[in-house]
């Protein structure tokens, strides 16, 4: 026989905790600057700042183990990657020769019509290197914490890259840390362009597939070459509004294209250049290229 008092207490505790979680969940979706939602965001930032030194220390302590696990995986993948890279080098050599010829022609044509050279990524961008100190354990929230914050010039909405390509953007920042939402997060959407085909679309993730992004909203008729590079387009819509990401940040490489009969657009799959599941060091782009900034600000 159960004691009624114990049963009531147990149910009350469960109800209170579930209720509290639901209240937190609802309030958090409110304004991040004012009211209860603002208070919760402030508490969260405080907690992140307090935990940052501990997370940073733990990251250093675990580095040998994560490196060992990474090395094992890399060795297993190396053989297949070697053959793939040889093919890619051959293709890129061919592309480089073509690009150099095109560049010479373009320079001559630019001189003829008097067009100014447009600054683009990564020439005039102020970059800050930071270390990843924590990341979410579920695939539903693709975000990482980095050990640089507002004291280092990091601001919300600044783009973040890894050596190989786009990683995501800063979504919140404290004095010492910042949260970077990755392009594999379910809420992410990046306007992009296929080079050299010129097709525009929006790069979106597929939850659970960090190595396979989708380039959506590409016209069915547009040709997309397998192996072509996808970069940020620098505009967020057809109206020419400025994007958070400067033009020309490499995102990934086209792996395949799907053309469904009933769909208006074709869906292009791409493999991201940055290894988004094993990020150690990232760079925050603290300013946009001068020419790009001028273009965004002008009406």
């Amino acid at each position: 026989m159960y004691d009624k008092k114990v049963v009531r207490r147990r149910r009350a505790v469960l109800g209170a905790l579930v209720g509290l979680s639901l209240i937190l969940l609802t309030a958090y979706f409110g304004s991040p600057t004012g009211g209860i939602g603002g208070g919760l965001h402030a508490i969260q930032r405080g907690a992140q700042e307090t935990l940052a030194p501990i997370e940073s220390g733990a990251t250093h302590a675990f580095k040998p183990f994560s490196d060992l696990a990474g090395w094992t995986g890399d060795v297993l993948d190396a053989k297949g990657e070697n053959g793939r890279l040889k093919d890619e080098v051959a293709r890129l050599r061919e592309g480089l020769a073509r690009a150099q010829t095109d560049q010479r022609e373009a320079e001559q044509l630019r001189e003829l019509v008097g067009l100014p050279l447009r600054a683009g990524f990564p020439v005039e961008v102020d970059r800050l290197t930071a270390r990843v100190i924590a990341r979410s354990p579920t695939v539903w929230y693709s975000a990482v914490q980095i050990d640089a914050g507002t004291a280092d010039g990091v601001r919300v909405d600044q783009p973040v890259i890894a050596g190989a390509g786009l990683v995501g953007k800063v979504t919140s920042a404290t004095t010492e840390t910042a949260t970077v939402t990755l392009i594999t997060d379910a809420s992410s959407a990046v306007s992009a362009e296929v080079m050299p085909d010129g097709a525009h679309g929006v790069v979106k993730p597929e939850v659970g597939k960090p190595n396979d992004l989708l380039l959506d909203f590409i016209e069915k008729g547009g040709e997309v070459t397998i192996g072509a590079t996808v970069v940020t387009s620098g505009v967020s819509s057809s109206k020419g509004l400025g994007s958070l990401f400067p033009r020309g940040i490499p995102i990934g490489k086209v792996t395949r294209s799907e053309r469904e009969e009933l769909e208006l657009y074709q869906r292009v799959h791409l493999a991201p250049f940055a290894d988004l599941r094993r990020l150690d060091i990232v760079q925050v782009l603290r300013s946009k290229p001068a020419a790009e900034r001028a273009q965004v600000l002008s009406p």
Binding site: L24, A47, L51, E55, A134, A143
Partner: peptide, 25 residues
């Protein structure tokens, strides 16, 4: 168990900047 789960979830959401309440629930 419930109290530990709530605290662990809250701490997880606070530390990672996730939506508060999801992991704790």
């Amino acid at each position: 168990g419930a109290l530990t789960g709530f605290s662990a979830g809250l701490l997880l959401d606070l530390a990672l900047g996730q939506n508060l309440g999801v992991s704790s629930l």
